[in-house]
Protein backbone atom coordinates (compact mmCIF):
# COMPACT_ATOMS: atom_id res chain seq x y z
CA UNK A 1 0.00 0.00 0.00
CA UNK A 2 2.76 2.39 0.93
CA UNK A 3 4.57 1.56 -2.26
CA UNK A 4 1.41 2.18 -4.25
CA UNK A 5 0.81 5.56 -2.65
CA UNK A 6 4.45 6.54 -2.97
CA UNK A 7 4.43 5.62 -6.64
CA UNK A 8 1.21 7.52 -7.15
CA UNK A 9 2.66 10.58 -5.49
CA UNK A 10 5.92 10.46 -7.43
CA UNK A 11 4.03 9.87 -10.64
CA UNK A 12 1.85 12.91 -10.07
CA UNK A 13 4.82 15.11 -9.15
CA UNK A 14 6.80 14.21 -12.24
CA UNK A 15 3.60 14.22 -14.26
CA UNK A 16 3.19 17.88 -13.34
CA UNK A 17 6.62 18.59 -14.78
CA UNK A 18 5.75 16.71 -17.97
CA UNK A 19 2.51 18.63 -18.16
CA UNK A 20 4.28 21.98 -17.94
CA UNK A 21 6.64 21.04 -20.74
CA UNK A 22 3.85 19.43 -22.76
CA UNK A 23 1.92 22.69 -22.66
CA UNK A 24 4.69 24.37 -24.62
CA UNK A 25 4.66 21.65 -27.26
CA UNK A 26 0.93 21.69 -27.56
CA UNK A 27 0.59 25.46 -27.77
CA UNK A 28 3.14 25.73 -30.54
CA UNK A 29 1.61 22.79 -32.35
CA UNK A 30 -1.82 24.25 -32.00
CA UNK A 31 -0.77 27.43 -33.75
CA UNK A 32 2.02 26.51 -36.13
CA UNK A 33 1.21 22.82 -36.64
CA UNK A 34 4.74 21.61 -36.15
CA UNK A 35 6.67 19.81 -33.46
CA UNK A 36 9.01 22.27 -31.84
CA UNK A 37 11.78 19.79 -31.41
CA UNK A 38 13.94 22.32 -29.62
CA UNK A 39 11.46 22.64 -26.79
CA UNK A 40 13.14 19.94 -24.71
CA UNK A 41 16.39 21.85 -24.98
CA UNK A 42 14.69 24.97 -23.73
CA UNK A 43 13.61 22.91 -20.75
CA UNK A 44 17.23 21.83 -20.20
CA UNK A 45 18.22 25.46 -20.56
CA UNK A 46 15.77 26.25 -17.77
CA UNK A 47 17.49 23.74 -15.52
CA UNK A 48 20.94 25.13 -16.20
CA UNK A 49 19.88 28.72 -15.95
CA UNK A 50 18.39 27.95 -12.54
CA UNK A 51 21.68 26.46 -11.40
CA UNK A 52 23.65 29.38 -12.78
CA UNK A 53 21.40 32.09 -11.39
CA UNK A 54 21.39 30.39 -8.00
CA UNK A 55 25.16 30.36 -7.92
CA UNK A 56 25.25 34.03 -8.96
CA UNK A 57 23.01 34.81 -6.05
CA UNK A 58 25.39 32.82 -3.92
CA UNK A 59 22.82 30.33 -2.76
CA UNK A 60 22.68 26.62 -2.69
CA UNK A 61 26.38 25.99 -2.18
CA UNK A 62 27.10 23.19 0.26
CA UNK A 63 27.45 24.26 3.88
CA UNK A 64 25.35 27.37 3.46
CA UNK A 65 22.04 27.75 5.25
CA UNK A 66 18.87 27.24 3.28
CA UNK A 67 18.07 30.54 1.58
CA UNK A 68 14.95 32.57 2.15
CA UNK A 69 11.90 31.43 0.22
CA UNK A 70 11.81 34.47 -2.07
CA UNK A 71 15.29 33.67 -3.35
CA UNK A 72 13.86 30.58 -4.99
CA UNK A 73 11.17 32.69 -6.58
CA UNK A 74 13.85 35.06 -7.86
CA UNK A 75 15.71 32.18 -9.49
CA UNK A 76 12.46 30.94 -11.05
CA UNK A 77 11.62 34.38 -12.42
CA UNK A 78 15.12 34.88 -13.79
CA UNK A 79 15.11 31.53 -15.55
CA UNK A 80 11.65 32.12 -16.98
CA UNK A 81 12.47 35.57 -18.32
CA UNK A 82 15.73 34.53 -19.97
CA UNK A 83 14.15 31.41 -21.46
CA UNK A 84 11.26 33.49 -22.73
CA UNK A 85 13.73 35.75 -24.52
CA UNK A 86 15.51 32.74 -25.98
CA UNK A 87 12.19 31.32 -27.16
CA UNK A 88 11.29 34.63 -28.77
CA UNK A 89 14.64 34.80 -30.55
CA UNK A 90 14.44 31.21 -31.79
CA UNK A 91 11.01 31.81 -33.25
CA UNK A 92 11.98 35.05 -34.95
CA UNK A 93 15.29 33.88 -36.36
CA UNK A 94 14.73 30.23 -37.21
CA UNK A 95 11.02 29.58 -37.60
CA UNK A 96 9.54 32.81 -38.88
CA UNK A 97 11.29 32.69 -42.28
CA UNK A 98 9.72 29.26 -42.78
CA UNK A 99 6.10 30.19 -42.19
CA UNK A 100 5.08 29.04 -45.65
CA UNK A 101 7.58 26.21 -46.03
CA UNK A 102 6.60 22.53 -45.95
CA UNK A 103 6.24 21.23 -42.44
CA UNK A 104 9.13 18.81 -42.75
CA UNK A 105 11.49 21.69 -43.39
CA UNK A 106 10.34 23.34 -40.21
CA UNK A 107 10.81 20.07 -38.34
CA UNK A 108 14.36 19.80 -39.64
CA UNK A 109 15.03 23.38 -38.62
CA UNK A 110 13.72 22.55 -35.17
CA UNK A 111 16.14 19.64 -35.00
CA UNK A 112 18.88 22.07 -36.00
CA UNK A 113 17.90 24.49 -33.25
CA UNK A 114 17.81 21.60 -30.79
CA UNK A 115 21.33 20.51 -31.76
CA UNK A 116 22.50 24.10 -31.61
CA UNK A 117 21.19 24.63 -28.09
CA UNK A 118 22.60 21.31 -26.90
CA UNK A 119 26.03 21.99 -28.23
CA UNK A 120 26.15 25.63 -27.27
CA UNK A 121 25.22 24.65 -23.73
CA UNK A 122 28.25 22.42 -23.40
CA UNK A 123 30.77 25.05 -24.36
CA UNK A 124 33.22 26.42 -21.86
CA UNK A 125 31.83 29.92 -22.24
CA UNK A 126 28.29 28.77 -21.39
CA UNK A 127 27.54 26.04 -18.88
CA UNK A 128 30.60 23.94 -19.49
CA UNK A 129 30.90 20.23 -20.11
CA UNK A 130 31.21 19.21 -16.45
CA UNK A 131 28.45 17.92 -14.22
CA UNK A 132 26.92 20.33 -11.76
CA UNK A 133 24.50 19.65 -8.99
CA UNK A 134 21.26 21.41 -8.27
CA UNK A 135 21.38 23.83 -5.39
CA UNK A 136 19.38 23.27 -2.26
CA UNK A 137 16.72 25.93 -2.23
CA UNK A 138 14.46 24.41 0.37
CA UNK A 139 14.48 22.26 3.44
CA UNK A 140 14.85 18.78 2.09
CA UNK A 141 13.49 17.09 5.18
CA UNK A 142 10.06 15.65 4.77
CA UNK A 143 7.18 17.88 5.64
CA UNK A 144 4.72 15.26 6.74
CA UNK A 145 3.89 11.73 5.88
CA UNK A 146 0.63 10.06 4.94
CA UNK A 147 0.49 6.33 5.64
CA UNK A 148 4.20 5.95 5.08
CA UNK A 149 4.52 8.29 2.08
CA UNK A 150 7.11 10.96 2.73
CA UNK A 151 5.96 14.32 1.43
CA UNK A 152 8.80 16.79 1.08
CA UNK A 153 8.40 20.51 0.95
CA UNK A 154 9.97 20.61 -2.49
CA UNK A 155 7.38 18.15 -3.79
CA UNK A 156 4.61 20.35 -2.51
CA UNK A 157 6.32 23.33 -4.11
CA UNK A 158 6.59 21.48 -7.43
CA UNK A 159 2.94 20.52 -7.53
CA UNK A 160 1.82 23.88 -6.15
CA UNK A 161 3.80 25.96 -8.64
CA UNK A 162 2.72 23.76 -11.52
CA UNK A 163 -0.92 24.07 -10.57
CA UNK A 164 -0.65 27.85 -10.20
CA UNK A 165 1.02 28.17 -13.59
CA UNK A 166 -1.53 25.97 -15.29
CA UNK A 167 -4.36 27.92 -13.73
CA UNK A 168 -2.74 31.14 -14.92
CA UNK A 169 -2.45 29.72 -18.41
CA UNK A 170 -6.04 28.61 -18.37
CA UNK A 171 -7.06 32.13 -17.38
CA UNK A 172 -4.82 33.65 -20.03
CA UNK A 173 -6.25 31.53 -22.82
CA UNK A 174 -9.92 31.66 -21.98
CA UNK A 175 -10.40 34.96 -20.22
CA UNK A 176 -8.11 37.49 -21.87
CA UNK A 177 -8.17 39.23 -25.21
CA UNK A 178 -4.75 37.85 -26.08
CA UNK A 179 -5.99 34.37 -25.26
CA UNK A 180 -8.89 34.65 -27.65
CA UNK A 181 -6.48 35.93 -30.28
CA UNK A 182 -4.38 32.83 -29.70
CA UNK A 183 -7.40 30.60 -30.04
CA UNK A 184 -8.43 32.42 -33.19
CA UNK A 185 -5.00 32.01 -34.78
CA UNK A 186 -4.97 28.37 -33.84
CA UNK A 187 -8.40 27.85 -35.36
CA UNK A 188 -7.63 29.53 -38.64
CA UNK A 189 -4.50 31.58 -39.13
CA UNK A 190 -5.59 33.26 -42.32
CA UNK A 191 -9.00 34.28 -41.10
CA UNK A 192 -7.50 35.52 -37.85
CA UNK A 193 -5.18 37.82 -39.76
CA UNK A 194 -8.12 39.03 -41.86
CA UNK A 195 -9.90 39.89 -38.65
CA UNK A 196 -7.06 42.22 -37.79
CA UNK A 197 -5.14 39.99 -35.42
CA UNK A 198 -1.41 40.50 -35.59
CA UNK A 199 -0.55 36.86 -36.18
CA UNK A 200 3.21 37.27 -35.84
CA UNK A 201 2.78 38.88 -32.47
CA UNK A 202 0.47 36.14 -31.26
CA UNK A 203 2.92 33.48 -32.41
CA UNK A 204 5.81 35.22 -30.66
CA UNK A 205 3.75 35.47 -27.54
CA UNK A 206 2.84 31.80 -27.69
CA UNK A 207 6.49 30.91 -27.96
CA UNK A 208 7.38 33.11 -25.03
CA UNK A 209 4.68 31.62 -22.83
CA UNK A 210 5.58 28.08 -23.88
CA UNK A 211 9.28 28.50 -23.21
CA UNK A 212 8.60 30.21 -19.90
CA UNK A 213 6.56 27.22 -18.81
CA UNK A 214 9.41 24.94 -19.88
CA UNK A 215 11.84 27.07 -17.88
CA UNK A 216 9.59 26.79 -14.86
CA UNK A 217 9.53 23.03 -15.35
CA UNK A 218 13.32 23.13 -15.47
CA UNK A 219 13.49 25.04 -12.20
CA UNK A 220 11.03 22.66 -10.54
CA UNK A 221 12.98 19.70 -11.83
CA UNK A 222 16.04 21.11 -10.09
CA UNK A 223 14.00 21.64 -6.96
CA UNK A 224 12.85 18.04 -6.96
CA UNK A 225 16.23 16.51 -7.67
CA UNK A 226 18.33 18.93 -5.62
CA UNK A 227 21.80 17.80 -4.80
CA UNK A 228 22.05 15.45 -7.77
CA UNK A 229 24.81 16.16 -10.25
CA UNK A 230 23.86 16.16 -13.92
CA UNK A 231 25.77 16.69 -17.11
CA UNK A 232 24.90 19.13 -19.83
CA UNK A 233 25.78 16.63 -22.53
CA UNK A 234 23.28 14.03 -21.51
CA UNK A 235 20.56 12.65 -23.70
CA UNK A 236 18.34 12.49 -20.62
CA UNK A 237 17.38 16.12 -21.21
CA UNK A 238 16.09 15.38 -24.64
CA UNK A 239 14.52 12.23 -23.26
CA UNK A 240 12.59 14.16 -20.63
CA UNK A 241 11.44 16.60 -23.24
CA UNK A 242 10.43 13.80 -25.55
CA UNK A 243 8.35 12.20 -22.84
CA UNK A 244 6.64 15.51 -22.37
CA UNK A 245 6.01 15.58 -26.08
CA UNK A 246 4.54 12.10 -25.85
CA UNK A 247 2.33 13.45 -23.09
CA UNK A 248 1.11 16.19 -25.40
CA UNK A 249 0.33 13.70 -28.16
CA UNK A 250 -1.33 11.22 -25.82
CA UNK A 251 -3.54 13.94 -24.40
CA UNK A 252 -4.38 15.22 -27.86
CA UNK A 253 -1.91 17.61 -29.37
CA UNK A 254 -3.08 21.19 -29.69
CA UNK A 255 -5.32 20.69 -26.69
CA UNK A 256 -4.29 22.47 -23.50
CA UNK A 257 -6.23 20.31 -21.08
CA UNK A 258 -5.08 17.27 -22.99
CA UNK A 259 -1.48 18.25 -22.34
CA UNK A 260 -2.07 18.39 -18.61
CA UNK A 261 -3.94 15.10 -18.60
CA UNK A 262 -1.29 13.50 -20.82
CA UNK A 263 1.49 14.75 -18.56
CA UNK A 264 -0.06 13.20 -15.49
CA UNK A 265 -0.83 10.00 -17.40
CA UNK A 266 2.72 9.63 -18.66
CA UNK A 267 4.16 10.38 -15.23
CA UNK A 268 1.97 7.74 -13.64
CA UNK A 269 2.60 5.12 -16.32
CA UNK A 270 6.33 5.67 -16.08
CA UNK A 271 6.46 5.41 -12.30
CA UNK A 272 4.07 2.50 -12.01
CA UNK A 273 5.96 0.71 -14.77
CA UNK A 274 9.21 1.24 -12.92
CA UNK A 275 7.77 0.24 -9.55
CA UNK A 276 5.78 -2.80 -10.57
CA UNK A 277 7.35 -4.09 -13.79
CA UNK A 278 10.99 -3.24 -14.27
CA UNK A 279 13.05 -0.09 -14.05
CA UNK A 280 15.15 -1.22 -16.96
CA UNK A 281 12.50 -0.42 -19.53
CA UNK A 282 11.57 2.98 -18.14
CA UNK A 283 11.71 4.80 -21.47
CA UNK A 284 10.13 1.94 -23.38
CA UNK A 285 6.82 2.19 -21.51
CA UNK A 286 6.33 5.76 -22.52
CA UNK A 287 7.05 5.16 -26.17
CA UNK A 288 4.98 2.00 -26.23
CA UNK A 289 2.07 4.07 -24.94
CA UNK A 290 2.74 6.65 -27.61
CA UNK A 291 2.65 4.09 -30.39
CA UNK A 292 -0.47 2.48 -28.97
CA UNK A 293 -2.29 5.79 -28.72
CA UNK A 294 -1.24 6.86 -32.20
CA UNK A 295 -2.49 3.62 -33.66
CA UNK A 296 -5.75 3.39 -31.75
CA UNK A 297 -6.72 7.03 -31.34
CA UNK A 298 -4.28 9.22 -33.28
CA UNK A 299 -6.02 12.39 -32.18
CA UNK A 300 -5.18 11.64 -28.54
CA UNK A 301 -7.28 10.91 -25.48
CA UNK A 302 -9.15 14.20 -25.39
CA UNK A 303 -9.12 14.13 -29.14
CA UNK A 304 -11.19 16.27 -31.39
CA UNK A 305 -14.43 15.90 -29.51
CA UNK A 306 -13.44 18.91 -27.45
CA UNK A 307 -11.48 20.95 -29.92
CA UNK A 308 -9.98 23.49 -27.60
CA UNK A 309 -6.98 24.29 -29.63
CA UNK A 310 -4.74 27.09 -28.69
Amino acid sequence: MTQFLQTLFDGVTVGCLYALIALGYTMVYGILKFINFAHSDVFALGVWLSITIASWLGIGATGQPTPAWYMGLLVLMGAMVICGLVGFTIERVAYKPLRKAPRLNVLITAIGVSLLLQNLGQQKFTFGPYPKSFPTLMESSSLFSVSGVQVRLSDVAVIGTAVVLMAALQYLIYHTKLGSAMRAVSFNTRNASLMGINVDRVISFTFIVGTMLAAAAGFLYGLKYEGQAKQTADSMWVMLGLKAFVAAVVGGIGNVRGAVLGGLLIGLIEFFGVAYLSSQYRDAYVFAILILVLLLKPEGVLGKATVEKV
Binding site: F34, I35, R103, L104, L107, M239, L242, F245, V246, V249, S278, Q280, Y281, R282, D283, A284, F287, A288, L290, I291, L294, L295, P298
Partner: peptide, 27 residues
Amino acid sequence: PSLRLRGDYLAIVTLGFGEIVRVLLQG
Protein backbone atom coordinates in the same frame (compact mmCIF):
# COMPACT_ATOMS: atom_id res chain seq x y z
CA PRO B 1 0.57 0.52 -39.06
CA SER B 2 2.30 3.84 -38.63
CA LEU B 3 2.03 4.82 -42.27
CA ARG B 4 -1.45 6.04 -41.64
CA LEU B 5 0.16 8.83 -39.70
CA ARG B 6 1.08 12.23 -41.02
CA GLY B 7 4.67 13.27 -41.51
CA ASP B 8 5.67 14.57 -38.12
CA TYR B 9 3.73 11.91 -36.23
CA LEU B 10 5.53 9.27 -38.22
CA ALA B 11 8.79 10.95 -37.30
CA ILE B 12 7.95 10.62 -33.62
CA VAL B 13 6.83 7.01 -33.95
CA THR B 14 10.05 6.03 -35.68
CA LEU B 15 11.96 7.88 -33.02
CA GLY B 16 10.00 6.01 -30.38
CA PHE B 17 10.70 2.75 -32.15
CA GLY B 18 14.42 3.47 -32.12
CA GLU B 19 14.33 4.25 -28.43
CA ILE B 20 12.34 1.11 -27.61
CA VAL B 21 14.87 -0.96 -29.54
CA ARG B 22 17.67 0.70 -27.62
CA VAL B 23 16.06 0.15 -24.24
CA LEU B 24 15.19 -3.47 -24.97
CA LEU B 25 18.70 -4.25 -26.20
CA GLN B 26 20.20 -2.60 -23.16
CA GLY B 27 18.06 -4.85 -21.01
